[in-house]
């Protein structure tokens, strides 16, 4: 198991980038009234067949040739289901894949969300050719970070240059605090 949900997300998004996605949408939505925390990762990568979708939650299924296990998806599924939540994958070859994990927000078995900003920074840093749309919702408030908008403003300045990295770090920190009021979960 991963120690933080944000690490699970990092791991799952790596599947999206490896699937050749040009845009990956990552959404975190906390609804305290419904007592849920929902994580959605949607990509426009190569997608999977129905057989692959069925098989992918099995730890002993992987498309890799190097070894016979693939634990990323089973980890996230287990982490969500342990909290009384749910897990779903929808995929279509050529269209992309959407992974949805719903966690019981107040469940004692729910791992902390962890350093989500670190996950987003790492993804942007390591995948200069992929766009990311990060949506963070906490009850009725929300904010977004869209690398497509950033690229438009930045012209040819790379997203992983120092000033931009520092901007993203500050942007995520301030907007998150503004959105969730500094909630720790």
């Amino acid at each position: 198991m991963m120690p933080e949900i944000s690490l699970n997300i990092l791991d799952i998004v790596e599947n999206s980038t490896r699937a050749g996605a040009s845009l990956v949408t990552i959404e975190i939505a906390v609804d305290t009234a419904a007592d849920t925390m929902t994580v959605v990762i949607a990509d426009d990568g190569c997608g999977m067949t129905q057989e692959q979708v069925q098989a992918v939650t099995d730890p002993f299924f992987t498309t890799r040739k190097t070894r016979k296990v693939g634990l990323g998806v089973p980890f996230l599924k287990q982490a969500a289901e342990l909290t009384g939540g749910s897990f779903r994958i929808e995929s279509e070859p050529g269209a992309g894949t959407t992974v949805t994990a719903v966690f019981g927000y107040s469940s004692i078995d729910r791992q902390p969300l962890g350093d989500m900003d670190g996950t987003i920074l790492t993804l942007i840093d390591c995948h200069p050719d992929v766009d990311f749309l990060y949506i963070y919702r906490y009850n009725e408030k929300s904010f977004e970070l869209d690398t497509r908008q950033m690229r438009e403003i930045l012209g040819g300045v790379p997203l992983n240059s120092q000033d931009v990295t520092e901007f993203i770090r500050q942007y995520l920190k301030e907007n998150r605090a503004d959105t969730d009021g500094g909630a720790v979960y």
Partner: peptide, 8 residues
Amino acid sequence: MAMTLDKL
């Protein structure tokens, strides 16, 4: 008011 993209 939190940060916007303007600084970019």
